[in-house]
């Protein structure tokens, strides 16, 4: 295990930021800490980096107890949401900083900097100041700077949060590929479930200072431990006694399926290739949301006021209403 977090707690006054967190992250894995803002995920990352001290519990990095170590001694690379580049240094100097602190020979520093700038595609900007770079370029610079010291773990705090949507998507793909090349144990914090599902090997869902679930993207999506995880990872609707995803509902225009709930189509909204239905289900306060393909909707000949019968598709992911954990 590269990172072992045991029983970590942290409070700010009355506010409980983290409550008895236990998690172990294997070497070489790309892990996402996913959760809503203020849920404690950034605090956990900063405790691992030594930028905050936990009130209780311990942090072990590469088998060494790091609980009491200052950030300087942990050999972690940290990447900030707002880049935190050294504005008065050139791009190359930024990357060289950690190596110079470690008093590496000049030739070695030079070679390493050149290698890293190549890796993050910034070689031609080596002698520019950070102010001459775009946001995406600055974040790649910050990443190169963190990787230069060959950290045992790489920690990224909302690394793409300050970038616009298009650049964010590019950098996300690029981070995945980079990780496949470099294989450094990586933890990144995000509140964007799509980002986590797309990039991470494993996702730790954190909410209100507690871990809700740990698992692979597929596990989380298919077998959410509870209502919160299910809701956080995608759209959720209610059908009878369970909550499930709107595309996991089968629509029939005639009764027949055992246990199907009858209802009336209240609204139909076409968005691109899909159709979103709002169905008033008998005996249910909340209307159910259903998503189906446009072709399917046309085949069923649905319109406002149509009577429909809804049932979960076979193998649908669902959690019981109000229930914490499905049996």
């Amino acid at each position: 295990m590269s990172i072992e977090v045991r029983g970590v707690g942290k409070r700010y006054g009355d506010f409980v930021a983290l409550d008895d967190i236990n998690v172990s992250l294997p070497t070489g894995q790309l892990t996402a800490l996913l959760g809503p803002s203020g849920g404690g995920k950034s605090t956990l990352l900063r405790i691992i980096a030594g930028l905050e001290t936990a009130d209780s519990g311990s942090v072990e990095i590469e088998g060494v107890d790091a609980t009491k170590l200052p950030p300087q001694k942990r050999n972690v690379g940290f990447v900030f949401q707002h880049y935190a580049v050294f504005k008065h240094m050139t791009v190359a100097k930024n990357v060289a900083f950690g190596l110079e602190i470690r008093k590496r020979p000049k030739a070695e520093v030079k070679a390493k900097v050149a290698e890293l700038l190549e890796l993050v595609h910034l070689s031609q900007f080596a002698h520019r100041l950070p102010s001459q770079l775009s946001g995406g370029q600055r974040q790649r610079l910050a990443l190169a700077r963190a990787l230069a010291v060959e950290p045992s773990v790489l920690l990224l705090d909302e690394p793409f949060g300050a970038l616009d949507a298009k650049v964010r998507k590019e950098l996300r793909d690029w981070l995945r590929r980079l990780h496949d090349d470099v294989h450094v144990t990586t933890v990144f914090v995000t509140h964007d479930q799509e980002e986590a599902l797309e990039v991470a090997d494993e996702i730790v869902v954190i909410n209100e200072g507690r871990i809700e679930q740990i698992g692979s993207p597929d596990q989380l999506y298919d077998e959410p431990a509870n209502d919160f995880v299910m809701g956080f990872l995608g759209a959720v609707t209610q059908l009878g006694p369970v909550r499930l995803r709107p595309h996991d509902i089968e629509v029939a225009v005639q009764p027949g399926v055992p246990g199907a709930a009858a209802g009336v189509v209240q609204r139909a909204l076409r968005v691109g290739f899909e159709v979103r239905l709002t169905v008033d289900v008998e005996g249910q306060a909340e209307p159910a949301l259903v998503v189906l393909s446009r072709a399917h909707a046309r085949a069923l000949d649905l319109e406002l006021g149509s009577r429909v019968w809804l049932s979960p598709t076979t193998g649908a992911t669902s959690v019981p209403l109000l229930g914490e954990v499905s049996a």
Binding site: A49, G50, L51, P70, P71, Q72, K73, R74, N75, V76, G77, F78, F80, A84, F86, F97, G98, I101, R102, A142, R145, A146, V149
Partner: peptide, 9 residues
Amino acid sequence: EAAASLGAS
């Protein structure tokens, strides 16, 4: 913080 995590005193 970035400088500290890069090892700077």
